[in-house]
Amino acid sequence: MDSVAFVVDSTADFPMGWKPPLDLYKLPLRLIVDGKEYRDGIDIDSDRLCELMSQGHSVSTSLPSMEDIVRLFEEIKDKYEQIFVLTVSQKLSGTFNAVRMVIENFGLKNFFLLDSKAVSGKIFYILWRLMKDAMEGKRISQQSVAEYEKHCEMFFLLGSLDYLKKGGRIGKLSLLLGKILHVKPVLKIDREGEVTKAAVGMSQHDAIAKLIALVKSSVEKFSNYLLYGGYGSVHVKEMLEQILSNFPKCDGIARVGATVLAHTGPEVIGVLVGKSF
């Protein structure tokens, strides 16, 4: 029996080519397109979802199915001494509670549930730190997650606030400002795992400048740092590359997954800065 494995859900986005140092499993959230259900990363990918969204199809998301959770946990429960399940922020999804229900109902004593209080690239960063701890024999807890969450920042820009509004992830006032005043907020995930404004640009150009300034400030704060970019539709990849060119290095680029895209829209770009380790 191996000692440790990790499980994340499909809102976690990894840089292309990254190889986890320990066994890692992914639990798919579900996307509903015009009433038809798909499993993220299995039945649908980012390219296909971007295509469907651009055609105006109705898109929403749902938790991982109980069947998928039970199937995965049954498959791995006897293979490891400890299995850490790191989910998307409870403030953004009910995935944490669905997983907790399965762990409690099946009495899975070697499963340990953690709220990342994050999404996308921030989950990747926290996961990587936890895996390093596991390899060094350190104790892993929710406090570990809270500590590493402080060691990274993720900023992102959207083509439109409409998708966040439809998913109930942003208030009506922010949507109104975005539509009437044409402001472009730079968003982030705060320490509680909620979407908040980090800055406001008066135009796309201004918003990009403010995002770059925020990233530079984080780079200075962390001194030795890791920097990653992420994008949704291939049409915004060039914009991301232009933003990243303002920094001496980039450690990797991720493609934003379908579940996250359903809430941000296809034209999302993001930058993650983390303390090097």
Rank of each mutant, 00 (worst) to 15 (best):
Ser62Pro: 04
Ile76Phe: 05
Phe84Val: 03
Asn97Asp: 15
Ser62Asp: 01
Ser116Ala: 06
Ala134Lys: 08
Ser60Val: 07
Asp133Leu: 11
Gln142Phe: 07
Leu127Tyr: 08
Met101Arg: 15
Gly137Ala: 05
Val99Ser: 07
Arg100Ala: 11
Leu130Trp: 02
Arg71Val: 04
Asp78Ser: 12
Phe112Trp: 08
Lys132His: 11
Ser141Ile: 04
Glu136Pro: 11
Glu136His: 14
Phe73Ile: 06
Ile76Cys: 04
Ala134Glu: 04
Asp68Glu: 13
Phe84Leu: 01
Thr95Gln: 01
Gly121Ser: 13
Ile126Asp: 02
Ile83Met: 00
Lys117Ile: 04
Glu74Leu: 06
Phe124Arg: 03
Val102Gln: 07
Ser60Cys: 03
Gln90Tyr: 07
Met131Val: 02
Phe112Asn: 09
Glu75Lys: 15
Arg100Ser: 11
Phe73Asn: 05
Gly56Glu: 05
Gly56Val: 05
Ala146Ser: 15
Trp128Gln: 14
Gln82Ala: 12
Glu81Asp: 15
Glu136Tyr: 10
Val70Glu: 14
Gly56Phe: 03
Ile123Ala: 02
Lys138Ala: 06
Trp128Arg: 14
Met131Thr: 03
Lys132Cys: 01
Ala118Trp: 06
Val59Phe: 01
Gly121Pro: 11
Glu81His: 13
Asp133Gly: 04
Leu92Glu: 04
Asp78Met: 05
Trp128Met: 13
Gly137Glu: 10
Tyr125Met: 00
Val85Glu: 05
Lys138Val: 08
Leu113Ala: 00
Phe106Glu: 14
Val119Ser: 13
Glu136Arg: 14
Phe96Glu: 07
Ser89Gln: 07
Ser116Tyr: 05
Phe111Pro: 11
Leu86His: 09
Ser116Lys: 04
Phe84Asn: 00
Ser141Glu: 12
Ser120Val: 10
Lys117Pro: 09
Ala134Pro: 14
Ile123Tyr: 06
Ala146Lys: 15
Asp133Met: 15
Trp128Cys: 10
Ile76Leu: 04
Glu136Lys: 14
Asn97Pro: 09
Leu113Gln: 08
Asp115Leu: 02
Ile103Asp: 10
Met66Asp: 12
Asn110His: 09
Ser89Met: 01
Glu104Val: 12
Gln142Trp: 10
Glu81Thr: 14
Leu130Met: 14
